[in-house]
Structures are given as C-alpha cells and as structure tokens.
Write a protein that binds this DNA or RNA. Structure first.
Length: 508
RNA sequence: GCCCUUGUAGCUCAGUCGGUUAGAGCAACGGACUGUUAAUCCGUAGGUCACUGGUUCGAGUCCAGUCGGGGGCGCCA
C-alpha cells in the first residue's frame, strides 16, 4: 500500500511509499532532487548516493521528466518544499523512463497554440491540475447546495425535436431519418419536471453551433438549470445569490492549495461570499453605463478613463525598463547568468506590452459603446465589463425589455419589460447566469411564440403545462465553465474543461 | 459574420535598409559541482524561415493568394 501526498501530514517521520511522476529535476554530484506529483499533490523526493548506494544512484540518474516511479523513504515536513513535504528515499522502483518530454518547461514559457495541441499532457501541469480540482469542488458544491434544499436532480434529453428558444444555431443530427438537434437548454423539460417534483435542477452538457470564437464560448459546455414551482423572480434572485455564495465559499474552504497555485486574489472571492450582491434595474443599468447615474460616488465612464490613463503610464514604464535592460545587455558588463535573466525579462516585458497595447486600443471603443448605449438594447460584453467595474460584488440586472429576451419570460404588467435577471460576475467576467420567472398565461405564450416564429405543434406539450395547474415558477441557467473561469481568474474558458470543444477545435 | 494581429530550432523569441555561412534562452544529450528550489558552470546536437506563386542580380525580410494561431466585436451561459 502506498500513501498519497494529500495525506502526508498523517505520516510525518515514518517510512512511506509514494508513487507518481517526476515533475521537475535538480541535481548535483551526489544528490538528486525530484519534484514528484501523484495526482493528489506535489512534494520533493531526495535520492542521495550515500543513502541508496552508487549503483542505485546511477539508476536514479536515468529518471527523466514525466518518468514514473515509486519511492520508499522517510517523510519529513519541510516548509520550503512545494506541498510542504520531502521524502528522503531509501529505495525506489522505476515504472517507466519517459522520452524527451515536450512540455518540460514551465507553463509560462509555453505558447497557447502548442499547449492546446498537447491538451492531453497539458492537464498534468500544476495550474491545470489546480483548475480541474476547483472545477470538481464547484460541481460537488452545486449538487450539495441543491440537494440540501430538497431539489431533485433530473436529466433533460440531449436530442430534441424543437429548437427551444428559437434563436441560437443548433447542431443538427440524424435521428432515425428525422432531423434532431443537440440540446441547447434543458429548461422547457425542467419546467415540466418542476410541475411534478416542485424543485428540480438539471446538470448536463449543452451544445451551441454558433461560430463564437471568444474567451467566453464553447460549442459544448455544461449547464446547471434549476426550476422552482411557486417561485417569483424575487425568490429566484435570492436563491441565485445564496447559490453562488455557497459554491464560492466551498472552494475557499477546500481549495486553498489550488487557489494558491493559480495565484488567485482570495480577497476578491471573500468579497463575493461576504457582501450582498448588487440588484440593479435594467433601466438604471442603462443610466450607469451612460455615465448619468453614479454608484456610491463611482462613475462607470470615469473608471474606464482612469484605467486608460493607468495603462498609458504602464506602457511608458515598461518601455523604459526594456530600454534600460537592453542597454545593459549591450554594454557587455553583465555576467552570463545575469545577461540571460535580463534577456528573459525583456521578452516577458514585451509580452506584457502587447497585452497593454491591446487594452489601449479596446478601452476607448468600450467607452464609446457605453456612452452611446440605447434603452432597449441587449448589454454587449464590453458593456457588462464597464458596468460591473463600478461594483465589487456580482451584479444582478433585472427586468429587461421583452424585445431582447426569450418568449417564455413573464411579462411585467403595464410595461414592455419581462421579469428576468442576468447575474454578472465582477472583474470583467460578465454574464454567468441568465434566469427569469416564466409566463403562466397560455394566451400570452401563444402570442409570443408567434412573434418569435416558433411552431406551435412542436411545443404543444409545453403548452399543456399551462393548461393543467399553471402556477408562478422561475428558474435560471448557470454556465459551469464561466463560473470556473471566474473563480480561478482565467483568461479563457478553454482551460476550464478537460477537453474543450469550441469553434475551430475538435482535437485532442 | 466583421475588424486587428501573427507564423523563424522540440518550446519561447531576436533577426536592423532586401546582401556572405540564420542567432539567443529554455528543453534534450555529454561533462563539472556535497542540499537543489527557474540551481549554477563548461560543451554537443538541433533549421524545407507555414505553403504556393511573384518582384529582384539576390528574399527569413517586399507583394499576392492559401492554410494555421492569437486578440476584439456580434450571438450567448
């Protein structure tokens, strides 16, 4: 029996066996220092010639990065090591000597294109390891939250005959000779189940064939859709807030190591758990965007302006630093190691400059878009960023114009609005949840289906839900990968799922 | 779908005005070093400059097309 690194704290001082893969190697004449990963964590293994003997030491020297081995030795606690432990090996057994490993360098020094092609190996890197473990805790946290509240988990069909909301592009497949579509939402089926079980949630894959090549879009992603009978939109919003606080709280409790590996700013997540979410009417969101309404003295447009000035200053500073370092390299007075360090620094500074210049070009466009925002429009992704920057906590924007929303949303009497809500994550991550109270009146539904060009025949079963015991009910849809991206502070959703499927990428 | 940008060693990138034999760091390989933390030091090997065509005495460099990558917007979770 061997021990897992995650359970090492119970075995300090004892002789243990660890089985894993060599993550990194440092060596001197008589000592080998291996960073070992075993899936549960990372630790250092020391193989010394003195302890294992000359012959065994020569064997251990053959171990390459990603070679697999079992080490038997004394476990000691050592603050300095990644993971906090070190094994002083007495003996070892080699499973396999790995060939020249293409991802042997630090993740920071590998390009995104290459990493994507090598996704099956990229998953072994510490950052990716951490992300997958956060994803796991988020998934379990979602189940725990709903189960504790008496929700019943249901599986909605993946093949559907109708296009549901009628707006997005769907993947068409052949279903025994008839056209069928891969599901873009389980919501309508969730409504049917909620009328049977009271409170339900779906947790399953969702498919969209839109050609959206952005940091927020996947062609195949996982969506969680609770649906509750006798819930109005206010109840929906309350549940949403509790839900996000609960899941983020769990990650903070259980994923300290992972969040540290990801260099996540914990105070940002603690804010989410501790502060009430902002609730903003759509009509007020429009005013905030246009700079006509301030939030606790903060003006959305002025914040962007300040960002812009900050970026200009940073660009000047970085440019100056590059010039200084280049001059030092050219002067020829640096030692070799120092010169290499300077050259590496120059390259990383140039990378930062590319990012900053990108922002320098984008922000003025974002300001223009926000300034000219018209009542009745849907929020664009830059508008979401501009809006959320004026708040620290997530923002719920509710009661939107019916014209930009789906047919099934409950109309707000005497207005052109519907009772719905979008939850926008802070730090520029934007929409992670969309939800609404559902229309209960069959005649209103029929009218709106016509307006949205939906065929009545395909949704006849859905209309039955309004014929027999129609009651107020609400629900929402959470994009799992978007939540993982925000929680881990990642640049792109492609890192939030083991094997992402998105526009233009099907392999590996 | 629209706009911007990019393709040079296994990887990350330099390559000046179009000019002789295309460079560096990392990884790999060989060696040195008594505890390393991006170890350090010495050495070796590694190239169809994405592809096709064009301009030119001469193209990694200029032009056109094709293919691939990245970013922004639209659509959305």
């Amino acid at each position: 029996m061997h021990q897992y690194i995650s359970e090492f704290s119970a075995h300090v001082g004892k002789t243990i066996t660890a089985k894993g893969w060599i993550y990194n190697i440092r060596k001197s004449k008589t000592n080998l220092f291996f960073e070992l990963r075993d899936g549960s964590g990372f630790c250092q293994v020391v193989v010394s010639a003195e302890k294992v003997g000359e012959a065994a030491f020569a064997q251990a020297e053959q171990l390459t990065i990603e070679s697999a081995a079992a080490f038997v030795g004394t476990l000691i606690a050592d603050e300095r090591q990644k993971g906090g432990f070190e094994i002083q090996a007495d003996s070892f057994e080699i499973y396999q000597i790995a060939e020249n490993y293409p991802l042997a360098q630090r993740e920071k020094d590998l390009g995104i294109s290459f990493l994507q092609d090598k996704r099956h190996l990229w998953l072994r890197k510490e950052r990716q390891w951490a992300i997958m473990r956060v994803r796991n805790q988020i998934i379990m946290g979602i189940h725990d939250f709903f189960q504790a509240k008496g929700f019943v988990q249901m599986d909605a069909p993946l093949f559907t005959g109708n296009s549901c909301e009628g707006t997005t592009d769907l993947f068409e497949t052949d279903f025994f000779g008839k056209p069928a579509y891969l599901s873009q939402s389980g919501q309508l089926y969730g409504e049917a189940m909620a009328m049977a079980q009271g409170k339900i949630y779906t947790f399953g894959p969702t498919f969209r064939s839109e050609k959206s090549d952005t940091p927020r879009h996947l062609a195949e992603f996982w969506m969680i859709e609770p649906e509750m009978a006798f819930y109005e939109n206010e109840d929906n919003m309350e549940l949403m807030e509790q839900f996000i606080k609960s899941v983020i709280g769990r990650v903070l409790e259980r994923c300290q190591t992972e969040l540290k590996a990801l260099e996540r700013d914990l105070s940002k997540l603690e804010t989410v758990v501790n502060r009430p979410f902002a609730k903003v009417l759509y009509t007020d969101a429009v005013k905030i965007l246009r700079g006509e309404l301030e939030v606790e003295g903060k003006n959305a447009l002025k914040i962007q302006q300040a960002d812009l000035e900050n970026i200009q200053r940073l660009i000047q500073e970085k440019t100056a630093e590059i010039a200084t370092r280049e001059a030092a390299v050219k002067s020829g007075t640096l030692k070799k190691g120092e010169k290499a360090f300077y050259e590496g620094k120059i390259i990383s500074l140039q990378g930062e400059l590319v990012d900053l210049n990108e922002k320098l070009q984008n922000i003025p466009k974002w300001i223009e878009s926000a300034k000219n925002f018209q009542y009745g429009e849907d929020l664009g992704s830059s508008d979401e960023t501009v809006l959320t920057r004026t708040f620290d906590a997530p923002v719920m924007v509710y009661n939107w114009p019916a014209s930009v929303k789906s047919f099934y949303m409950k109309e707000l009497k005497g207005t052109d609005l519907v009772k719905n809500v979008d939850l926008l994550a802070p730090e520029g991550y934007g929409e992670i949840i969309g939800g609404s109270e559902r229309e209960t009146d069959i005649n209103v539904l029929l009218r709106k289906m016509k307006e949205h060009n939906l065929t009545e025949a395909e949704l006849e079963w859905y209309l039955d839900l309004r014929r027999f015991g129609s009651v107020p009910h609400s629900g929402f849809g959470l994009g799992l990968e978007r939540l993982v991206r925000w929680t881990c502070n990642l640049p792109h959703v492609r890192e939030t799922i083991p094997f992402p499927r998105r526009y233009g990428r099907l392999f590996p």
